[in-house]
Design a protein around this nucleic acid. Sequence first.
DNA 1: CGATAATATGCAACTGGTTGCATTTGCAAC
DNA 2: GTTGCAAATGCAACCAGTTGCATATTATCG
Lengths: 158, 158
Amino acid sequence: MKTKHSDLIDSLTTRGYRLTPQRELLLSMLSETDTHLSADTLLTRARKAYPRVNKSVVYRNLELLTELGLVSRVDFGGGHVEYEVHRHPHHHHLVCRNCHHMIGISSDTFADLQRQLADRYGFSADMDHLALFGLCHDCQTSEPANAHAQRSHHPHAL
Amino acid sequence: MKTKHSDLIDSLTTRGYRLTPQRELLLSMLSETDTHLSADTLLTRARKAYPRVNKSVVYRNLELLTELGLVSRVDFGGGHVEYEVHRHPHHHHLVCRNCHHMIGISSDTFADLQRQLADRYGFSADMDHLALFGLCHDCQTSEPANAHAQRSHHPHAL
DNA sequence: CGATAATATGCAACTGGTTGCATTTGCAAC
DNA sequence: GTTGCAAATGCAACCAGTTGCATATTATCG
Ligand SMILES: [Zn+2]
Ligand SMILES: [Zn+2]
Ligand SMILES: [Zn+2]
Ligand SMILES: [Zn+2]
């Protein structure tokens, strides 16, 4: 997707922001992958190509690119945030709190809710890229004892 | 709400967890307020009564109390998390990204969505205490230039 | 009531992310 | 091409939250 990459660069420069090697690198890493990447992963990868890049630059630019709408941020909770280039249509994620399996869902699943919030409260909700937690189908029958995070410890519990 | 407080303590001890002064203090602070409190606020307040309390204890106990369902956590994004005693019925929050005004809404607003996610994806979503971002009624007409966070800076922007 | 064992706490080191400031650099004007 | 200046970067100090471990405390049992 080279086109996408140069489109992104145009978006930056025509709005008066400078094209720096760090920004170009970030945008190319993001447009060449089809999954999300965390800031930390982006920093590590960026340094392979260009060892001087500083973490504050990565964070500041991800912030900027998100504000400009070129990049979409998803907050997985507990401070875990990931980024991807902003594509249409939007999508959201259902994350299993037991096995950590992740289901991608289309944004129109939220259309009714969005309308309801607008009607009842006059609130225009941002529904670009959400993550909801819960239990996936497989984990509902047998909540504990799967992949991760079982409450192993406390002797008395239950 | 003294009753609530002693109920919480019972919940702890009958499940085999010890009643320590720190835990009692946390629970009483939480049950005596009707809003959310951040871990940091709880730590600061706790130290007034009991200067030795350590921050790791506050974080660890909030984690425990949340897992036990005695306390409800809400993630306001950007690493900002708050806690309150778990009450029924549940509620959620709509937070304006412009003026930071917060609207509390009843949990049944999400009932349809929850059902839909169960039907379509077999996913049982946790809908205890969510925060959604967006624009409140007043800020939709005049997005920038309100209370906080206007894009003051970049000269070229737009 | 005193001993015991397992849990909870305090502490100090560490981590991921943020901030302020001095230096560098991209870009436009000459 | 050179110059000038605002914007962007690198750096180092900082901050909230987490982790491992030695010490203190709780609840239980004799
Ligand atoms: Zn996504
Ligand atoms: Zn699962
Ligand atoms: Zn709430
Ligand atoms: Zn508002």
